[in-house]
């Protein structure tokens, strides 16, 4: 399977584009790194690929077909700040199982303790919440994972824990991953290949 962005351009104003003719392609099971300076449009590209932003020019396709706007999106996006990705009025158990029923194996792999499930989001730390966000996104129906700076806000041990698990799961499920980060060391460690998004972007 292939997730493709072709000639993607985006800008809030007509003559001030953030993204210009970006081409990107990601295959199943591939772990691709995306590096760019602050403000180069990395996050916008992620949102376009995952269908969060649809006022762009160009084409985003999954195996040459457009991604349907309704129903489960096989392209899942996980953000930098997990606090914003959970409804503060929900308990963690409901948050975790919103998309699919997360198996006990995955919970154990992520180190999610059962007594966390009864807690409210504000009782958990960022690193703990990010595990929930990832477990929620990695359902059997997910084909691609866009990881937009997912470990930027956590310490190095948590970062290593999270990525080791994610890599195991995506390998098992044959999911393609786009790793967005400003940390070259991390990208070098994780990815087979790297794409650079320059300010005036020609990848």
């Amino acid at each position: 399977m292939h997730l493709k962005g072709e000639n993607v351009s985006f800008g809030y104003k007509r003559n001030n584009l953030i993204l210009k003719d970006v081409n990107i392609s990601l295959g199943s099971g591939e772990v691709l790194g995306l590096i760019g300076d602050s403000g180069s449009g990395k996050s916008t590209l992620c949102k376009i690929l995952a269908g969060y932003e649809n006022k762009y020019q160009g084409k985003v396709t999954l195996d040459e077909k457009e991604i349907p706007p309704k129903g489960y999106n096989p392209v899942q996006l996980v953000f930098q700040h997990p606090e914003k990705a959970v409804n503060p009025k929900w308990r963690m158990n409901d948050i975790l199982n919103e998309g699919h029923f997360v198996s006990q194996d995955i919970l154990e792999a992520f180190g999610i303790k059962n007594n966390w499930l009864n807690r409210w989001p504000n009782e958990l730390s960022g690193g703990e919440l990010q595990r929930f966000a990832l477990a929620r996104a990695l359902s059997p129906k997910t084909r691609f994972l866009i990881a937009d700076e997912i470990t930027t806000m956590v310490d190095s041990i948590t970062q290593a824990q999270i990525w080791n698990i994610v890599l195991d799961i995506v390998e098992e499920l044959n999911i393609g991953v786009l790793v967005v980060s400003h940390d070259r060391n991390l990208i070098n460690r994780l990815c087979n290949d790297t794409v650079y998004l320059k300010d005036i972007n020609n990848t």
Binding site: G51, K70, N73, Q76, K84, N87, R136
Partner: peptide, 12 residues
Amino acid sequence: QEYIHISRNLGK
């Protein structure tokens, strides 16, 4: 909010 977008992406 991001969690509303995510919910939509989860097919809700």
